[in-house]
């Protein structure tokens, strides 16, 4: 066991050199690397936290916009519903108006048809009634309808003498209108009845196919008449009041 002092010095130098080499190539790189890595990890953690914070804020913004969109959507839906309801109400009103208008037109049409029908009915009824009256008079009294009418007008003239005199004035003329030409005897009788009340008056006889059966005596502004129409007016009034009569007289589709 000997000590070589030259070797000791050499080993001292070698070991000091080794310390420097290890410090240069091992300790400092390792320790600095660890520090840099920790710093890098800290930096990345900070960046991650920052990114996470940005993500949170972005999420918050997104949620805010989402809520806003939902609110706008609800508002739009409500507006659309209101507009739809308004349009629906408008369409319903227009439909109601059209229905009402069509109903009115339909009623007018029905009323027009009813009037036409009633006019036709009245015209037909007039003829039928005059024919029935004519037959009844002929069968019961052996008298014509026109003779009865002349006698009836002659009776009505007497109470109206003053009125008729005032109406006829100085013209001393009167007119007699009938549906069919009036027979000569009847004309003479009517002339005689009127002359008895108003002497000197002259009658002009004429006939009008469009007139209702009967006789109309026109003296100036006065008018004495007997026509079937007055009966037909009564007939129409009674017809309007009696449903049974309407049912009989207005078959299928004519009752309203």
């Amino acid at each position: 066991m000997s000590i070589d002092w030259i070797t000791v010095l050499a080993q001292l130098a070698n070991f000091l050199l080794l310390i420097w080499l290890l410090r240069r190539f091992l300790y400092r790189p390792i320790l600095d690397g660890i520090d840099r890595r920790e710093a890098e990890i800290s930096r990345r953690m900070a960046e991650a936290e920052e990114v996470r914070e940005q993500a949170r804020s972005a999420e918050a913004r997104y949620m805010e916009q989402y809520e806003k969109c939902l609110a706008e959507q609800d508002s739009m839906v409500l507006r659309a519903l209101a507009a739809t309801e308004g349009a629906r109400d408008q369409l319903m009103d227009e439909a109601h108006d059209r229905l009402e208008q069509e109903r009115r037109e339909w009623h007018r049409h029905l009323e027009r048809e009813r009037r036409e029908f009633m006019a036709q009915l009245q015209q037909a009824g007039t003829l039928v009634l005059s024919e029935l009256v004519r037959r009844a008079l002929h069968d019961l009294a052996d008298e014509s309808l026109e003779a009865g009418i002349v006698r009836h007008i002659g009776r009505r003239l007497a109470p109206m003498a003053d009125e008729l005199a005032a109406a006829v004035g100085a013209t001393r003329q009167a007119s007699v209108t009938s549906r069919e030409p009036l027979a000569e005897p009847l004309q003479a009788r009517l002339q005689a009845d009127l002359a008895a009340l108003l002497p000197g008056i002259r009658l002009q006889f004429s006939h009008d196919a469009g007139q209702s059966p009967g006789i109309v005596l026109q003296l100036g502004g006065a008018r004495v008449e007997w026509t079937i129409d007055s009966y037909m007016d009564e007939f129409e009034r009674l017809f309007a009041q009696d449903p049974a009569a309407r049912t009989v007289l207005l078959p299928d589709g004519h009752e309203h």
């Binding site: 080794l18 080499l21 190539f25 091992l26 790189p29």
Partner: peptide, 16 residues
């Protein structure tokens, strides 16, 4: 050996 091994291990240290 120690220096070479240390150099080989630590020559390309990158924090990332």
């Amino acid at each position: 050996v120690l220096t070479l091994a240390s150099w080989l291990v630590t020559r390309r240290l990158r924090p990332d």
